[in-house]
Simulated scan of single mutants.
Amino acid sequence: MFSGQDFNQSVIIINNDGFWPDLNLSEFQIDRAMSPNINDRLLRDAIVSAVVEINLTLEQYKNKQVANGITSAENCGVISVEGVSSTVIIYKKAVFARAKADLIGEFVSIASRDDKIGESQKEMRATLLAESTREIRKLLGLRRCGVALI
């Protein structure tokens, strides 16, 4: 979105727990096309919230990896791209999608003043949360959807 302002990427690093990767705020801004009008503290807080939520969801996965002698997500995964483990790539996608879903009200209110924004805002948020959930399911070795016998 063009705002007439210079886009300065943030140099804030969110330190993770040692197993999961540290996250770079500028990577989030670029990967998720975040508006430069949203302040860094709000972006940082959304990422921190997403990290805490996703780390809790993946706690058993992490504990299993650590029990098997794997001390970092960087050493997990079936493939790597430019030296980055698929596990790290998938984790970041999950976190960034969840963080953007949390920020969608801010993002949309800056981008548009349309009265119908509420419905598209809900759809976009649901899409981002679904993406995050799909990425988490990948890490857990689950398919996109599951069926359980009740």
Rank of each mutant, 00 (worst) to 15 (best):
V108G: 00
G77K: 03
A94Q: 01
Q121Y: 01
A99Y: 06
R98T: 07
K62M: 14
V66Q: 11
T57S: 14
V95D: 03
F107C: 00
Y91V: 11
Q9Y: 15
E106F: 08
I70E: 04
Q65W: 11
I30A: 04
E74V: 02
S112M: 12
T57E: 03
G105H: 12
S49W: 05
K116G: 13
S132A: 15
Y91D: 10
V81I: 01
Q121K: 08
N55C: 13
G105C: 08
L58D: 03
P36M: 04
L139Q: 08
I150K: 15
G69Y: 03
L23W: 12
N68E: 08
F2P: 12
V11E: 08
G105Q: 11
L149I: 09
W20M: 12
R134G: 00
I150S: 15
E27V: 11
P36L: 02
G118Y: 03
L43T: 06
D22T: 10
L142M: 14
R134I: 00
L42P: 01
C76N: 13
K116D: 14
S86G: 15
I110A: 03
V66A: 02
G118N: 05
N75H: 00
D45L: 10
Y91M: 10
N37P: 00
S112Q: 11
S26K: 10
N16C: 12
V78L: 00
D22V: 01
S26I: 02
V66T: 09
A94H: 02
P21W: 02
V48S: 05
T133Q: 03
G105K: 06
A97F: 08
I89E: 10
K62D: 09
S26M: 09
K62A: 06
S85A: 14
Y91Q: 12
R98D: 06
P36C: 12
P36Y: 09
S112D: 10
K138M: 10
D40M: 04
T133H: 15
E135L: 03
R113K: 06
D115S: 02
K62N: 11
Q5F: 02
R143N: 15
T57R: 15
E119R: 09
N75V: 00
C145R: 11
G18M: 07
I79D: 09
R44F: 05
I150W: 02
L56N: 14
A126S: 13
D45H: 07
I136M: 06
Y61F: 11
E123L: 08
I104S: 06
A46Y: 07
G141A: 13
S72D: 04
N75S: 05
A148V: 14
R113H: 09
S85H: 02
I30W: 14
E106A: 09
A99W: 03
W20E: 11
S80F: 03
V108P: 01
G146Y: 00
G146H: 03
I54T: 13
E119F: 13
T71I: 13
L149T: 13
R137E: 12
F2M: 07
S49Y: 04
T57Q: 14
D6Y: 00
G146F: 01
N24Y: 15
L23Y: 13
A67C: 05
R44S: 02
M34L: 15
A126F: 07
I150G: 15
L43W: 08
S35T: 05
K64E: 04
V147S: 12
L142R: 11
S120V: 14
G77R: 06
N16T: 12
P21Q: 04
G4F: 10
Y91S: 13
D6F: 01
F19P: 04
L139Y: 04
